[in-house]
Amino acid sequence: MHELALTCAIVESAEDAASGRRVIRVTLEIGRLSGVMTEAIRFCFDEVARGTGVEGAVLDIREPDGRARCRGCGAEFATPDLYTACRCGGLDLERLQGLELTINSIELAEAA
């Protein structure tokens, strides 16, 4: 259920950045290893946005796949989860991609 709290934060940030104008699109990046279900965000979004300047906005979610670099051997590889080791056996990994939890941009309606 942390997706509800995250959705509140998304709507709040969008509304703050819009400075009173109507938001028609919100673009997010939610990595596949971030531990956040995009379906749940979508499920909460319309309800949370209701009555705010974000009501009715389109939700665009990019979902980057997991990627990591091994600090041992330097190999870069796809990570379907957070516990797959490098082929050399290394577990000390730099996570390059897949943990994103970002609100990238909002699109505003033209001023009336």
Partner: peptide
Amino acid sequence: HNLDHGHDHAHQHGTTVALEARILAKN
């Protein structure tokens, strides 16, 4: 409030406002 005013977290291009902020930035 006009589109050029300086919130340091928002850089605006046309009607798209780039935020590039962590969703949990406030927490």
